[in-house]
Design a protein around this nucleic acid. Structure first.
Lengths: 200, 200
DNA sequence: TTAGCTTTTTGGAACGGGTACGGTTTTGGA
DNA sequence: TCCAAAACCGTACCCGTTCCAAAAAGCTAA
């Protein structure tokens, strides 16, 4: 009889969103370090424990949608068309990420991140996890020859490309330049006999 | 009457060393997170404020000599023989670093680091600073063509090589493998004139 | 030796992020 | 209508870190 669609989930998502919105607003108004967790919780009208049941840390409040980015690179590998080469697919995805960060109305947020050492470090640790996830996806892909070391290296190179591009004067050109290098590295890594080569 | 040599410096160094030794001992005995700052200070017989006047953070207690490593890579660039190619010099240095970490009696310390997420993150942030320092040295070297983006990228690739090697089953082989890729990337980066290039 | 300056150390209080815990309300479903 | 799970609440607490005023110790020179 009753509508089966979860109201709980909706309310929970709403609470989470309210916390994130309040936090970002306060951070932009007063600065990241000038705002305490208890300030955010009070302003969002939730308990501190509730806040931490939705976000693992203060930094995570800023990277609200970090988990999505977390997996876009990985999906660029797993979901790419059969036979499509790896590096261009990754390059396209990094281009999209950089465009998203440097372009639209998200500029104040990224300025906030650039100003705070804690947030910058957090972003780096996110990228490291991303690299590990990407490396796992690459290693598992049978089209890529399964050289674990080369895959891990390229995965980290890709996150480095993102970092370097974000700091560069011309981010889009920097992406192309670094990916040109990654392409060469990847070719060299494929050819390298390394130690143990089971295929290709 | 007494020798006028700087006793203050000696005592300060001794205090620092005593804190570091005590900390490492306690961490190895009971585990990193099971030991608090106040425990270390009490056991070393100093005030907490004294401890923090010698070390910037709890993690820094473990990487006591971290600042030395911090600059070895940079010096491998600035101090290399005139005309000596860049990448082999870096490769040699990374080999030395990896050997130092995986080889001798320092094994328990590195095990400690591998077990603690906080220490692993701290090591990563150290490497990031190292990459920035290395990139600055490379960009400043007139022999390298001064392509800032390529230099920054290779600097991060080099630290990635270290990370990948430390996690690999055969670290020394992994260093060679990743550096083979870096060599190719560097060559590609040199040839690329810079900004305005093909866009797909 | 004493006096005066600087550096180091001290202890305790306090701050801020994060957690443990035990209790209350809300929700979905039987 | 009743129950169990999930979400939320408040508080006290832990721990790394910093602040502060003051004591201790090293240095320099009269």
């Amino acid at each position: 009889m009753t509508v089966p669609t979860g109201r709980r989930e909706r309310k929970k998502a709403a609470t989470r969103q309210k916390i994130a919105d309040t936090a970002l607003r306060l951070f932009l108004e007063r600065g990241y370090e000038a705002v305490g967790i208890r300030d955010v919780a009070a302003e969002a009208d939730v308990a501190v424990t509730t806040l931490f049941s939705h976000f693992a840390s203060k930094e995570a409040l800023v990277f609200e949608r970090g988990d999505e980015f977390q997996q876009r690179l990985t999906r660029a590998v797993t979901d790419r068309a059969p036979g499509e080469p790896l590096v261009p697919a990754l390059r396209r995805e990094v281009h999209a990420l950089v465009r998203h960060c440097t372009g639209d109305g998200a500029a104040p947020t990224w300025h906030l991140i650039d100003e705070s050492p804690a947030l910058r470090e957090y972003e780096q640790s996110m990228m490291l996890r991303q690299a590990e996830s990407l490396a796992a996806a690459m290693t598992a892909d049978p089209d890529l020859g399964g050289n674990a070391t080369a895959c891990r290296a390229v995965a980290r190179f890709v996150t480095a490309a993102y970092s370097v591009a974000r700091e560069a004067a011309d981010p889009r050109a920097a992406v192309d330049e670094v990916f040109h290098m990654i392409e060469a590295a990847w070719e060299a890594g494929r050819r390298a006999p390394g130690e143990e080569l089971s295929r290709a």
